[in-house]
Computed example of a mutant assay.
Amino acid sequence: MEAPDEQTTPFSSVTAQTNKLGRQYQALLDQSTPYVLYRWIGTGVGLLIFFARVFFAQGWYIVAYALGIYLLNLFLAFLQPKFDPSNDALDNDMEDGALGSLPTKQDEEFRPFIRRLPEFKFWHSATRAVTISFLCSWFEVFNVPVFWPVLVMYWFMLFILTMRKQIQHMIKYRYVPFSIGKARYTKNNA
């Protein structure tokens, strides 16, 4: 029995269209890469629209809570270095220490801060999550009745505790994930 050709399978046209849409979507993402501020403004507007939907509909609090936890998780991954210096003590398998780790002593070589979650992937995941949450807010099955002030209190407690831990980690291993005050060079300066 011979295997059917790709052109004769019943789903070849569907696969071709899916691949075409995937390429167009990737092209849009590639074009949006340099516009960091505009991308985040768009995501912020989408988040505000979602919160307005939740506020005026008086429901879908559990969806908003899940979105908040997911965004917090993304933010923490954005703040953390790709090569965590606290794992060096656990991973002493390498002879010279972990490659790519942050310097922890004054005389160590400088290594740039590399994020565990790059900004573009952070934005893309956050935008997808906001979009999915907004879509979920139109289906009654996701409108689980909960006492929303408790969820807000839980989220703030979670945020405070995790950020406290992250800030302590940043202080202990002396790294700053932001480049505030960094000198910017233009063509005229060079």
Rank of each mutant, 00 (worst) to 15 (best):
L28D: 10
L28K: 14
L29Q: 14
L29D: 10
L29E: 14
Q31V: 04
T33K: 15
Y35F: 13
Y35R: 10
Y38C: 08
I41H: 09
I41W: 07
I41T: 12
I41F: 09
G42Y: 06
G42D: 08
T43W: 04
T43C: 08
T43K: 04
T43P: 01
G44C: 13
G44S: 15
V45S: 05
L47D: 05
F51P: 03
F51G: 07
R53N: 13
R53K: 14
V54D: 13
F55M: 11
F55H: 12
F56D: 03
F56Q: 12
F56V: 04
A57V: 02
Q58A: 05
G59N: 09
Y61I: 00
Y61V: 01
Y61F: 07
Y61K: 07
I62V: 08
V63C: 04
V63R: 01
A64D: 02
A64H: 03
Y65F: 13
Y65R: 01
A66T: 06
L67Y: 03
L67Q: 05
G68Q: 01
G68H: 00
G68M: 01
I69Y: 01
L71C: 04
L71Y: 00
L71I: 02
L76C: 03
A77E: 12
F78V: 00
F78A: 03
Q80A: 13
Q80Y: 11
Q80F: 03
Q80E: 12
K82P: 02
F83D: 04
F83T: 09
P85A: 01
P85I: 00
S86N: 08
N87V: 00
N87C: 02
D88R: 15
A89M: 08
D91W: 08
D91S: 10
N92M: 08
D93I: 04
M94W: 08
M94V: 08
E95I: 06
D96C: 02
D96Y: 05
G97Y: 02
G97S: 05
A98N: 15
L99Y: 12
S101T: 13
T104Y: 03
Q106A: 10
D107H: 07
E108V: 00
E108I: 02
E108C: 06
E108Q: 15
E109G: 00
R111W: 02
R111S: 11
R111C: 05
P112E: 13
F113L: 11
F113G: 10
I114G: 09
L117F: 02
L117D: 04
L117S: 06
P118M: 01
P118F: 01
P118I: 00
E119Q: 14
F120W: 12
K121Y: 15
F122K: 05
A126V: 06
T127M: 15
T127Y: 14
R128D: 09
V130K: 12
V130H: 12
I132S: 11
S133Y: 04
S133L: 03
S133H: 08
S133C: 10
F134I: 02
L135Q: 13
L135M: 15
L135P: 10
C136K: 14
S137C: 15
S137I: 04
S137W: 03
S137N: 13
W138L: 14
